[in-house]
Design a protein around this nucleic acid. Sequence first.
RNA 1: GCGGGUGUAACUCAAUGGUAGAGUACCUGCCUUCCAAGCAGGCAACGUGGGUUCGAUUCCCAUCACCCGCUCCA
Length: 510
Amino acid sequence: MDMDKLVSLCKRRGFIFPSSEIYGGINGFWDYGPLGVELKRNVKDAWWHDHITSRDDMVGLDCSIIMNPKVWEASGHLGGFSDPMIDCRACKGRFRADQATAVVFALGSADDPSSKPRFFVVCGIGDRDDVLKANEKAIEKAKKANKGAAWPETSETIRLDDAAIADDRYALVPCPACGQAGTITRPRSFNLMFKTYVGALEDDSSVAYLRPETAQGIFANFKNVVDTGRVKLPFGIAQVGKSFRNEINPRNFTFRSREFEQMEIEFFCRPDEAQEWYQYWRDYRFKWYTGLGLRSDRLRLRDHDSAELAFYSTATADIEYAFPFGVSELEGIAHRGDYDLSRHQQFSGKDLSYFDEERKERFIPHVIEPSAGADRAALAFLCEAFVEDEVGGEPRTVLKFHPRLAPIKAAVFPLVKRDGMPEIAQKIVADLKRKKINAFYDEKGAIGRRYRRQDEAGTPFCVTVDGQTLVDGAVTIRDRDSCEQRRVAVDSIVRAIDDLVEGVETFSKD
RNA sequence: GCGGGUGUAACUCAAUGGUAGAGUACCUGCCUUCCAAGCAGGCAACGUGGGUUCGAUUCCCAUCACCCGCUCCA
C-alpha cells in the first residue's frame, strides 16, 4: 500500500489535516477532521468500553497534563532525558555528553614555555580509566611520535558536558566512536519534554512540563484511588489523554507526533502474580487489535531482549504493526515491578504501600503497564482498512473499517429526489441518530456515486429508499465490502443497522 | 540533526522570464437512473520571505512543510 494515497485520502475526505496548514503547518502536529475525529473517538471509546466499562477490576482517571515537576524527577524523565548530546559529523554517531570523557595531554610546553602548546587528546565513553585503557595503543603510538620531548606526567580529564573546554582543544577531541578528530559538535541539549512556566512570571521556580506520558499521573494518584476504598488488588487504573514529546525528528504521517494521545493502563497486583498478569495483558491487548480488524499476520508481539529492557523492567513486549513505512510499535506492555511506586514513595515521602487483607501483608504492588497510542492505533486501522478493489470492473477506493470504528455507521439515500423518498430517508436518519447511531443523509448525484463516496469514508452500510418503498414499506441495505443488498422493512431498519454494527448479526446471513 | 527529493485549485497533474491550463471534487440548474464518469453554468492555485530583473510561478538565496535514507525514539 502506498502511504501517499492514504495521506491524500485522509486530507481529501477530512480524516487528518496538517496542523495550522494555512500558516504553512508545523512539524510534528496534526489535526483530525470531521471523519477523523469520529474514527479516533471510536478507537478510544472501544478501548474504554473494553477495558473499563465492561470489566469490574478497572477504574478510570483523568489527571492534569501539567503536574508538579517533582513527578518527572521521580519518574526519571527530567534527569535522564534532557541530557546534552554530542553528534559526530563524520560517522553520524550520537553520544550523551556526560558519558563521554576526554583525556588531554599537554605536549611540548613544559620545557619551552615560549613555544605554542600542543595537545594530544583521547576520547571515549566511560570514565578516565576506561578511556585510557581503550586508547592504550593510540597513546603508545603518540609517545613514540613524541620522541625527544618528555611525555607529560599529568593529564587533564574533561567531561564533554563541561562547556569550559576551549575551542582549540575541543577541535582536537576525537569522536568516541570513529576516532576522527574535529568532527564532533559541542554538546547540545535535547529537551524531550516541553517546558513551560506556571504563572505570569517566567523564572526558575515556575518551570513546569507538559507530561510526556499519562502513566505518571496514575502513579501519583495511586494512593488517592486506593484510599477511596473502591478497589482491591489486583486492579487497574486507566487513562486516556494527550501527551507531549519534543521528538527530534517527527516522521511517517501521524506516527511520530510531538502531541499525541495515549491509552494507558497501570495494572497493580501482588509481586508473585505479576508475571501471570503480564502474560494476560500481553495476550489480551494483542487480541483487542485483531478483534477490531487488524490482520494478525500484520501484527507482531515482540519481546524485548535483555539489552533492550529498561533496567527496572523484568519483561517488556511491543505490539508492532506492519505499517507501509515499516514495522513499528503500536503499544508496549511492560512489567515494571515496583519501580514507579517505589520512586514516588521515595520522592514524595508518602507511604504508597498496600495492605493485603487476605494475606495480612503490606507491600508495594507490582505493576503491568499496557501503554497504547491512540493516534498510532487509529493510523494502523486506517492503513489496514485502505483497500483498492474493483466493483463491476470499475476501480474503487474503500476503507473497510470494523463497524465499531467506522465514523459513519449508515448513510441513507433516496434513490431519486421525489415522490416522498427524501422525506422517508430523512426520517430514517433521524431515527438512527436518536439511537446514537451516527448516520448521514445524501441525495446528491447518481446513486452509484453516493455509494462510492461512502466507501471512501468507510461507512459499512447504506440504506436506500426507492420507488418500491412507497408500495411495500421496505428499503435496501447495501453492504460496503460485498456491495450486496437486501431488503428490510422500514420499521425494523434501525434495529437491523444496530445489530449489524454491534456484530449481533452479520450481513450475509439472513 | 545530517544527506537527497518535492512544493502550482480541495485532490491529481500540466505549461511558462511577460501575472497560469486540464481532469476529478465541490456549488447552481436540468435529467431521474441501484454501484463513480448525461447536459449547461460557476467557484478555485503558483508554501513563505528576500534577491537578480523593466518584469519572477519560472533563476538565485533563505525559511517552512512534506517524502526517502541515516540518526533518534525514556
